[in-house]
Amino acid sequence: MKKFGVLLFAFLGLVSCSDDDDANVDPPFEGQTEEYDLGAVGESGVSGTATFDENEDGSVTITLDLEGTTEGAMHPAHIHYNSAAEGGDIAISLEPVDGDTGISETTVSMLDDEETSISFEDLIDFDGYINVHASADDLETLVAQTDIGGNVLTGESQSYDLAEVDVEGVSGTATFYERENGETLVELALDGTTEGNTHPAHIHMGAVADAPGDIAITLTSVDGASGMSLTNVASTDGTEDEEGTSVSYEDLIGFDGYINVHASADDLDTLAAQGDIGANATEE
């Protein structure tokens, strides 16, 4: 019995040590992941995802996984500053997408300036967007694009009708989309515009019935070929002496204003389309 008791004590001691050892072992690292949809630009037919994976050393692995890429081609890719609607300089150069596989994988811990570190948390709040280009010799042509970080849309939106005014057949909608950072993507979509024309557009103060009102926010001119305009709105227009006032999505959908779309830069007196927005819009 003595011998059995000694063996039992030793066994229990081993179990106890094993339990203590297990308690001191750190759990395996489980990094965070964020995924963004990359949409096709124009008629490229290229789309897919951009996945950000947090690594244990603090770096981030960015994987682009695209369909519709060109076999034998290499598609340069970059993270840019600002939203896609605004455009901006390159912040981070990514590995080109291999046209054969549609894959690009880049591990980053710094911006291209080689001075500014970038973490997973920084990237998912980043004021940026991703461009994927046709080729190194044709960077002007984009095949896929997406906003990232704070510029991602929340899913909240509000649309307003833009009615025909002085230019026959031109009408459409203005849609305000909320971003994660509280800013707004303003999309004008018009029917009846013609290729070769550009139509200046503005948000004015007051209602259509009280027009003319002062310009509050200058929007990107509507392209006549596509009938489209995209503008990122974060503030009202400033002046030479004063910066504009910060304006959020919530501010805009309650704004006392209206939108004018003009015939051309040379003919601002002729209105192509117009509509009340915010507090002045008619509830349907």
Results as ranks from 00 to 15, higher is better:
105 E>T: 14
36 Y>C: 05
206 G>L: 11
157 S>Y: 09
19 D>I: 08
199 H>D: 03
249 Y>F: 09
153 L>Y: 01
45 G>N: 14
11 F>Y: 09
241 D>G: 13
142 L>I: 07
59 S>R: 02
25 V>F: 13
199 H>Q: 07
284 E>A: 15
233 V>C: 05
179 R>V: 09
231 T>L: 09
270 T>A: 14
281 A>D: 01
219 L>C: 09
168 E>P: 00
216 A>N: 06
158 Q>W: 01
271 L>D: 02
237 D>T: 15
175 T>Y: 00
110 M>V: 12
89 D>W: 15
80 H>M: 10
52 F>G: 09
108 V>H: 11
231 T>A: 13
273 A>L: 07
266 D>W: 07
14 L>R: 02
111 L>Y: 06
45 G>I: 10
167 V>Y: 03
192 G>R: 09
104 S>G: 13
205 M>R: 04
79 I>H: 02
11 F>S: 08
135 S>H: 00
86 E>D: 11
104 S>P: 05
243 E>V: 13
57 D>W: 03
249 Y>M: 15
256 D>Q: 06
267 D>F: 07
58 G>K: 02
216 A>V: 09
105 E>P: 01
60 V>F: 05
260 N>S: 09
271 L>G: 02
222 V>A: 12
115 E>M: 13
257 G>P: 06
5 G>Y: 14
70 T>I: 12
270 T>N: 07
15 V>A: 07
265 A>K: 11
13 G>Y: 02
67 E>N: 12
111 L>C: 01
39 G>K: 08
2 K>C: 09
265 A>S: 13
254 G>L: 10
103 I>V: 14
138 D>A: 14
281 A>S: 11
38 L>C: 09
33 T>D: 07
143 V>Y: 05
177 Y>E: 05
227 G>I: 08
258 Y>P: 04
151 N>M: 15
113 D>W: 06
245 T>E: 12
151 N>W: 11
68 G>F: 14
251 D>Y: 05
55 N>A: 10
28 P>S: 10
169 G>W: 05
54 E>I: 08
233 V>L: 07
278 G>F: 07
149 G>A: 14
18 S>A: 10
111 L>I: 02
136 A>I: 15
131 N>C: 15
219 L>Q: 06
119 S>K: 03
86 E>M: 10
119 S>Y: 04
227 G>Q: 03
25 V>H: 06
269 D>R: 01
43 E>T: 15
14 L>Y: 08
98 D>I: 10
27 P>H: 04
137 D>K: 12
213 G>W: 06
59 S>K: 01
177 Y>I: 02
243 E>P: 00
248 S>V: 05
281 A>E: 03
238 G>A: 12
199 H>N: 12
165 V>Q: 15
1 M>T: 12
120 F>H: 03
247 V>A: 15
231 T>F: 11
259 I>G: 03
236 T>M: 13
86 E>F: 00
185 L>K: 05
41 V>K: 04
253 I>W: 01
71 E>Y: 00
192 G>T: 11
107 T>Y: 04
34 E>W: 02
160 Y>N: 04
177 Y>M: 01
140 E>C: 00
55 N>T: 01
113 D>C: 15
145 Q>N: 11
90 I>C: 09
140 E>P: 00
16 S>R: 03
99 G>K: 08
